[in-house]
Design a binder for these strands. Structure first.
Lengths: 225, 225
DNA sequence: CGTTCAGTTTGTACGCTGTTCAGACTGAAC
DNA sequence: GTTCAGTCTGAACAGCGTACAAACTGAACG
């Protein structure tokens, strides 16, 4: 019986930990983009040999999962506050907050959809959604299904949005991104894709908060009992 | 004026082309997973030096975009047929078909959300969706927004679904994947996440065709004028 | 026919990646 | 004071994306 003190650190130094590794990874992700978030990059960021990380994570994928879960938690708690608002408003707030938070780490959005949502923070977020949907009057089964619907929409939207952003830099403002999309749509052939060309103005704005909210509202309309 | 014949091949051999490169990439993706879809892998698959590919694509990202677009086209055309069914049925069919098609290439789903949907096949799919939604009675603006809503849901759902599948193998049947999820949910603490634990049975089935169709229906309910 | 020359493919090389293995160190516990 | 689990390092492997210069090919032109 050795580890009766569960937090004991028999090793030489407690320099590393799951915490500081995820911290460093997140720092690199924000500063230099997802490509910089390599094992070697994280290690040098921490002044440590690359192998040292393998004491705390079995492989890189595990690190990424941890980063994703941290990210979800970080921005989901921000929306846990106001409990007096009606359920629909609260889902609205949660979704908008989470989208904004994830977009603040442009390189991360792709990661979120690349790993199953099974970390502790993801579970907490799901639990919270179930709370709100139960309050909305949905029965247990429908609430569960609806929560997944909301998550899928949220993550899908953010991922598609982030796919057009250069992950190494702080994400340009919305109107700038819309303008760049507009330019892209101006190039589509009106002969081949008439409806697309006619709706180019709307499509350029797919990546806006307004479109996100519109879709979310249609979705909540569909859930309304 | 040299290239009056636009398809002339002045070079030594027409061994390569955009076509055969995408073909080879897709073959590797299906057979050995997305990690095998490397420049060097594709090159050796074609019996060619790795650099040769850079004559046809500026970098690897461009190859991936081409693969994604090919995939979208491949499985979208399959659903373009039946025009006599009501609009809602047709969107249903299109979405279900596309999901099934994309899941047939387990490694690809992550890629689809990683690149903006701006290839020619993606545009064609969008145009098609606009057709159906216009027929449904939505005005031009709403149709455009609705089409994006459907795309976001479809791709988000498939991506989350594919994130749990080993991409190097042909994707196990649905009930097997559900069972594996069920096992995962059995481990969550009922004390910490009571609602999640209570709904574990439903959540294990998040990745089923049934849940996909349920969400799609809620979404179409919200679009109904 | 011979030459030209754009377009295609190759050899070689650089710097980077994730990961493994054997070993060196550290410090709490006996 | 020794033991020994746990932590970290050095060195190395195989593979990656991609740039550069050179070699080859074959249609077009004189």
């Amino acid at each position: 019986m050795r580890q009766n003190a569960p937090t004991s650190k028999p090793g030489p130094r407690g320099i590393l930990s799951v915490q500081v590794i995820v911290d460093a990874a997140l720092r690199l992700l924000d500063d230099k983009g997802p490509d910089a978030m390599s094992m070697r990059g994280i290690a040098t960021e921490l002044g440590v040999a690359p192998n040292a990380l393998y004491t705390y994570f079995p492989d890189k994928a595990a690190v990424l999962r941890a980063v994703v879960d941290r990210l979800i938690g970080e921005h989901a708690v921000a929306a846990l506050a106001a409990t007096e608002r009606p359920w629909r408003q609260r889902i609205h707030d949660l979704a908008l907050e989470l989208r904004a938070g994830l977009l603040r780490h442009p390189g991360a959005a792709g990661l979120v959809l690349g790993a199953p949502m099974d970390g502790p923070q993801a579970l907490a977020l799901g639990e919270r959604l179930l709370d709100v949907l139960a309050e909305a009057g949905l029965d247990q089964d429908d609430a569960a299904r609806a929560s997944y619907l909301v998550i899928v929409y949220l993550l899908g939207f953010v991922a598609l949005e982030a796919a057009e952003v250069d992950p190494t830099r702080p994400a340009p403002p919305e109107d700038e991104r819309v303008a760049s999309r507009q330019a892209g749509f101006d190039a589509v052939s009106a002969a081949e894709y008439p409806r697309t060309a006619a709706s180019a103005g709307t499509m350029a704005r797919y990546i806006t908060t307004e479109q996100f909210a519109w879709g979310l509202d249609r979705l909540l309309d569909g859930l309304q009992p």
